[in-house]
Write a protein that binds this DNA or RNA. Structure first.
Lengths: 299, 299
DNA sequence: TGACATGCATAAGTCTTCCTTATGCATACT
DNA sequence: AGTATGCATAAGGAAGACTTATGCATGTCA
């Protein structure tokens, strides 16, 4: 198959002209003048070496060859338009959020209903990714990731600062007569003792160089799971208080100390590439997240 | 369906890039640089509002959306290419000759075999048209018409001058003891007495204002038919000698007088639009016709 | 392990091509 | 007859496509 299609602008003009059987109307559809269409058609005819239209007075007719070509070209363009339309439709109506599991489970999951009720025309698809996976930067419209900085050039909004403090179930605390001092925590099992946050917190609490190497390693990697184990009384977890608000209010978890730490600049960021700045669905989602945070009294 | 396709050049670049999964290769195929492809893809991505390719190092991958779009776009372009290829193939291999019946029957029909033997790759299609019809200027590659001048701007070769003289079968001539003088013809029935050529010929023969109105009107309109009736002895026909050569040589017809007439400038012309000047099949046909004429001793 | 090759991104400048404007022509309509 | 409509054509202009040149990242090979 000789790969050399005639100039596409000429084909496009022909496609429209063959549908309208009028250069003038085709021009209108394509947003150009009659003369331009005429020029393009002639170009195509010269290129092919035969007439596509018969010029009657004030009227054009497809020639035999022209008619044959027209039907195929119109078909091709129809499916081409369909392809783009499908894509933009689907794309406009579907918001893909790549979020790490923690945020997805602790924050998004139980609020998303509100967003969907406010925006019934947008189907939200959450792609959660675990601690060892990477966000799907490419296939997502929006990414929520916990990191020090989102990809370069991306637009980023800080959602929640990654603070942390130990949490445990009141029942577990009672087993050792309550938690009075940080040291008390070491009497209990830790959920994911390998979490680097422990070192930082204990250091801040005045217990540097705590050795957690003897603790069994359960490596949960996601606050959602860690919180569940903590609630079940299986150990002490080190969690972000904001995400535990509900569990604390309902008495499932207690936060024994006010002291919270954070790794400098580490936060959850909602981010998206600049190209999405003007995207309706992205704007709506971003504003909705901001609103929710404000209601929670977040800065 | 929103009719606004993205720029076609961008779509074309995407189509090629998606097949090669390489901007460089796509550029080669399209005869442009890698930079140009990169530019067009970016254009398309900006327009659509999302990425089509993921840029890995020294490699690109289609995103989810990109892959979906690619399959459809490639399909569309494939059928588009196919459409043009079909057309040019068919067009290159098929020569459509619109010829008036006289020339088609008297000249083309029995010689065409030779042309087809010389050019087995070209399928000749003759569209004959009767005396009251018009040549199919549009749907033909070549037109053979009897007229004073072919369409303006067309390239025309005079094939046969439209000369004429009475012809009849020797049997019919014998019924009145042979044809000695032009007047003798009036003793016999005329095939198509309404043919204007009669007036002209009789006038040239020294018998002006001959009144043929009483003759039965059979209005054949095509020399082929008129010749047949003359051969059958049904009357005298006024024909072009060149087309009767064979019938005369075989004794089916006689030409009683040397006198031939013609209407000024009226001829059979082989003509075609300038666009076909370089067409192989048209060139071959034109040259073949010229060769045949030369063999017949025509100028 | 450093030198080189490969492939994409980007900026600046050029040049082509496409399009508009303006006009003419033929013809249909009133 | 006069006007409106539709296509053709020429000339000029503007948008955008493409090239050149360069940078960057990384894989490869001596």
């Amino acid at each position: 198959m000789s790969n050399t299609l005639p100039p596409l602008s000429a084909i496009r003009a022909f496609e429209a002209a063959s549908r309208h059987l009028s250069f003038t109307k085709a021009g209108e559809e394509l947003g150009m003048t009659q003369a331009a269409v005429s020029y393009q058609i002639r170009l195509l005819e010269d290129r092919l070496g035969f007439q596509l239209f018969t010029r009657k007075t004030r009227r054009i007719e497809l020639t035999e060859h022209g008619a044959e070509l027209a039907s195929k070209v119109v078909d091709s363009f129809t499916s081409l338009r369909q392809a783009f339309e499908d894509l933009t439709d689907k794309n406009a109506g579907q918001l893909v959020v790549s979020s790490n599991t923690t945020f997805a489970v602790n924050w998004l999951s139980n609020r998303l209903v509100h967003f969907q009720m406010q925006n019934p025309d947008i189907a939200v698809r959450i792609l959660p990714y675990g601690p060892d996976a990477h966000p799907r930067f490419d296939s997502s419209d929006v990414v929520v990731s916990a990191c020090k900085a989102p990809p370069k050039d991306w637009i980023a909004h800080e959602v929640v600062k990654a603070t942390f403090t130990p949490m445990l179930s009141p029942v577990l605390a009672e087993t050792i007569g309550g938690i009075k001092q940080p040291e008390d925590l070491l009497k209990l099992p830790l959920v994911d003792p390998q979490d680097p946050w422990w070192d930082i917190w204990f250091a801040a609490a005045g217990i540097p160089d705590v050795d957690l190497s003897s603790y069994p390693n359960s490596r949960m990697g996601s606050q959602a799971l860690e919180a569940n184990r903590a609630i079940a009384g299986q150990g002490v977890a080190i969690l972000t208080p904001y995400f535990c608000k509900n569990a604390i209010e309902t008495g499932q978890l207690i936060q024994p100390f006010e002291l919270t730490c954070r790794v400098e600049a580490e936060s959850w960021f909602l981010s998206y590439p600049p190209i999405n700045r003007t995207s309706r669905k992205v704007r709506l989602f971003r504003d909705w997240v901001a609103g929710e945070l404000k209601r929670d009294g977040m800065p």
